[in-house]
Amino acid sequence: MRLVNIKPARGVRLLIAAIPILAVLIVYAVFSTARAEANPNDKVLPTFVAMGQAAVRLFTETDPRTGEITALADTSASLWRLAMGVGIATLSTLLLGIALGVVPLVRAALGPIITIIAVIPPIAVLPILFIALGLGEASKIALIALGIAPYMVRDLAGHVAGLPAEQFVKAQTLGASTWQLTLRVALPQALPRLIESLRLSMGPAWVFLISAEAIASDVGLGYRIFLVRRYLSMDIILPYVAWISLLAILTDLALQTLSRKAFPWAHGGGH
């Protein structure tokens, strides 16, 4: 049988998916143990035990300086910034993307400027945001929103404009006004795509969040990682990276589930 035709069953799939993950963990365990035996104070490859201890400390002990549990304070600060930035981006994408996709006049007026904004590297305007909005929350939220919104707007506008012209003609022959057309034909079909492009944009959103936090902040997941880097505290950095990955995976799962539940017609049928 040809290689391209071999399709693993579900159990086999799970098994062979676990192999590379386990391999990475085992290789790490071997090397970190070896280094710890040679030098108990080694900081570069902390053992799983050391990382576990650090993680427990971060998630349970109160920081005497702030009176808060460090990891929880970092997480809530970061998630709040992320939610605000992503929320603003999503809302503006919904309004702009649909307007651009449905109304040719809006597309003619705003399409070029959005294309121009989209090619500006967001990190390059971070200094401008810091100068204009200060070093507080606003500039971090603005960076996330500006970083992901142009791509999402263009994606959604393209999707809406690409809906079959027949649908828009049909809706008009059924008496729909521009507003009704937007509300009942374009909007419902835009929403699953919006969630899809949001899922793809969450990666960049995290990048912008951590960049902004690394440069100017006093709390947050990105701030913490860059702070402890000075002390080579890999036992804190690695659990934080794992924690961020876990949050990202959970967000993605939640968005995927939302889309499947809310828009069954977009996922191959309603049953």
Binding site: E166, V169, K170, A171, Q172, G175, R184, W265, G270
Partner: peptide, 27 residues
């Protein structure tokens, strides 16, 4: 286009996000 002229195309004539009932009630 206006509602005094109805149309059925070869494809894409119905709205994929509405049920059969929803499609007919649309107008």
């Amino acid at each position: 286009c206006s509602p005094d002229r109805g149309v059925v195309f070869q494809r894409y004539s119905v709205f994929p996000h509405l049920t059969a009932l929803g499609n007919v009630m649309f107008g």
